[in-house]
Design a protein around this nucleic acid. Structure first.
Lengths: 239, 239
DNA sequence: GTCTATACATGGATAGAC
DNA sequence: GTCTATCCATGTATAGAC
């Protein structure tokens, strides 16, 4: 009977639900988060939830959509940054994506472990696919410029971009699992970096770009990430 | 009250359940298949199901396990086929995997569409990960041989093998969705093949192998697959 | 050891009150 | 537009027959 919080106290109910859902999905997992947990966190009833979303999967799409859109915002201007060379643009692109990821790992040194659990494959999959869709045209444009200027030697820009993104994502997944596992199993940091170099080198070959030209900052990023994971939560996230 | 089939008529109950589960998962999807549907198909009760499996996810693991093991059986001998060159071994490897896939598509020109639906990401993920685990050492051994003989120029064999498998899987996923979509959207066959060449070419670069050396039969395979999809089910699968 | 019958809790969904 | 009350499917667990 206890009536949840009054409506008047609420502003962006849908947004609050998305926020709460993401916090729960990333700490408990998707399947393990009942709709009830989401509404409890916000102080709403089930009916309200189903008023804002078509179902549980719908809120997952909203969560994913919000994150990818944030990323998209950061990268969409890169092709038109006339002070950067194509290679610099690519590095800027990579940098934007991984620093965004780092920023969103604050809530979640724990979350990495959760998100990469089997049952949460659906989250990763939706994220990857949406990111692929939205980022491919941007990266393709950069590649096109590089080909025109003669600094890249690659095939069809769209396909090439897609492949690069695929690799970059696979690398991220691999590195994430490497870093998480490194706490138990102690694989050498050297070995992990070495593996990353293989991926980066492959991207260079695909682009027909010189060795060690892609993402030279990567080593530093990994170090940061490792520090973040070691020291537990980096900072608190209130809302 | 109606008592299902008697026990005496049964031989490999667990196997029957796995079989039925796979048929249902691949036609209706994982989430959309209640445990009840599986036991109905076999003529058993719920208790029996929970006698053989710890839960629904357990039967999915069994399904995936069985398929990957079948594939593993076909490829594990390849590194020791002394009449083949390393490059031939790699092609044999690829061929084995994709012809196995084709063979298991008989039940399922329909299944492709189902398996690639969002909600079934968990099936694909489990499949890919198990395949990666089991196939990497085999492919790595072949690569090691190639490096020793000087026909490949690649880095650490395990990492290289993993990357190749990753690409091969990504290519398969891409091609599957291309071919399925081709029924509505009419993307040119040319474009699809072209995309495949990009993946194969990348694998060659990773191995440091000559162009067009990997999987020259691929074009033919794709044609076969396309025929299979066009003409609906290819053959019936009784048990 | 193998299975039937059944009970139960959970949680996704909906109808309709306010 | 917001929420309460309710329904129902389904995953899980168990007691006990054969």
């Amino acid at each position: 009977m206890a009536r949840p919080r009054k409506a008047e106290a609420r502003e962006d109910t849908r947004g609050e639900l998305i926020e709460a859902a993401w916090r729960l999905f990333s700490t408990a997992g998707y399947d393990a988060t009942p709709v009830e947990a989401i509404i409890d966190a916000v102080g709403l009833s089930k009916g309200a939830f189903y008023y804002y979303f078509n179902g549980k999967e719908d809120v997952l799409d909203a969560v994913v959509g919000r994150m990818v859109d944030e990323m998209a915002l950061e990268i969409e201007g890169i092709p038109r940054m006339s002070d950067l060379s194509p290679m610099e643009k690519i590095n800027r692109f990579m940098e934007s994506i991984s620093s965004w990821k780092l920023a969103h790992l604050d809530i979640l040194s724990e979350a990495v472990k959760v998100i990469y659990r089997d049952e949460n494959a659906i989250i990763r999959y939706k994220m990857n696919r949406k990111a692929l869709r939205e980022f491919t045209p941007v990266l393709a444009e950069i590649i096109r410029q590089g080909i025109e200027e003669g600094v890249f030697e690659a095939g069809e820009p769209e396909d090439t971009a897609e492949l690069i993104l695929l690799l970059s994502n696979a690398m991220a997944e691999r590195q994430a699992s490497d870093l998480v596992r490194r706490e138990e199993d102690s694989e050498s940091a050297q070995r992990i970096l070495h593996r990353a170099q293989l991926y980066l080198g492959t991207m260079e070959k695909i682009l027909g770009a010189p060795a060690s030209s892609i993402y030279p900052l990567y080593d530093k990023r990994i170090e940061e990430l490792e520090q973040a994971l070691k020291s537990g939560k980096v900072k608190e996230n209130g809302a």
